[in-house]
Lab assay of single mutants.
Amino acid sequence: GQTTVQVRVPYRVVGLVVGPKGATIKRIQQQTHTYIVTPSRDKEPVFEVTGMPENVDRAREEIEMHI
Rank of each mutant, 00 (worst) to 15 (best):
T24M: 02
G15R: 10
P53A: 12
T34A: 01
Q6I: 09
V46S: 02
R27V: 05
G15L: 00
K26N: 07
G19R: 03
T3V: 14
V46C: 04
V37K: 15
Y11R: 15
P20G: 03
E44T: 02
G19P: 01
R12E: 15
I67L: 09
G51V: 03
Y35F: 13
V9F: 00
T38Y: 14
V5I: 15
I63C: 03
P10K: 06
P20W: 05
I63N: 12
T32A: 03
T32Q: 04
T32Y: 02
P20M: 02
I28Q: 05
T38V: 11
Y11S: 15
D57W: 10
P10M: 01
P10E: 00
G22R: 06
R8N: 00
P53E: 07
V14I: 15
Q2F: 14
H33D: 15
M52L: 13
R41H: 12
F47D: 00
Y11P: 15
V9K: 02
M65H: 15
S40D: 15
D42N: 12
M52T: 15
S40V: 10
F47S: 01
V37W: 01
K43H: 14
L16G: 06
F47N: 07
I67F: 07
Q2T: 12
K43M: 15
Y11D: 13
K21Q: 10
V56W: 02
T32K: 01
V14Q: 01
Q31C: 03
N55H: 05
V18N: 09
V14G: 03
G19Y: 11
R8L: 05
T32D: 05
K43C: 12
E61V: 11
R60T: 06
Q2A: 08
P39L: 07
R58L: 09
V13Q: 15
V46W: 04
R27N: 05
I63H: 02
Y35N: 14
E61S: 12
V5A: 09
I28K: 01
I67Y: 15
V9H: 00
V9L: 01
Q6P: 09
P53G: 06
P20R: 13
V46E: 02
T3G: 06
V14R: 08
R27P: 01
E48D: 06
R41C: 13
V5Y: 03
E62M: 15
V17T: 06
I28G: 01
G15Y: 03
V7N: 00
E44C: 01
D42V: 07
R8Q: 04
P45D: 04
R12D: 15
T34H: 00
V7Q: 05
T4A: 06
T4K: 08
Q30E: 13
V5K: 11
A59Q: 02
I63S: 01
Q31T: 10
G22M: 10
V5H: 01
R8W: 08
I25A: 01
T32L: 03
G1A: 10
T4W: 01
D57K: 15
Y11N: 13
T4N: 01
Y35H: 15
P39A: 07
V5R: 09
G51C: 00
A59V: 03
I28P: 08
T50C: 09
V49L: 05
P39K: 11
R41I: 11
P39E: 08
K21R: 11
T3D: 07
P39M: 07
T50E: 01
R8F: 04
T34G: 01
Q31P: 04
R58P: 00
Q2L: 14
H33Q: 14
P20D: 11
T3N: 04
A59L: 01
Y11M: 15
I36H: 06
V13S: 15
H33W: 00
R8D: 04
V56Q: 07
S40I: 09
Y35Q: 15
K21H: 10
T50H: 09
G51P: 02
I67E: 10
E61P: 01
D42Y: 11
E62S: 08
L16M: 15
V13D: 14
G15H: 13
Q29G: 09
V56L: 05
V49D: 03
I28A: 03
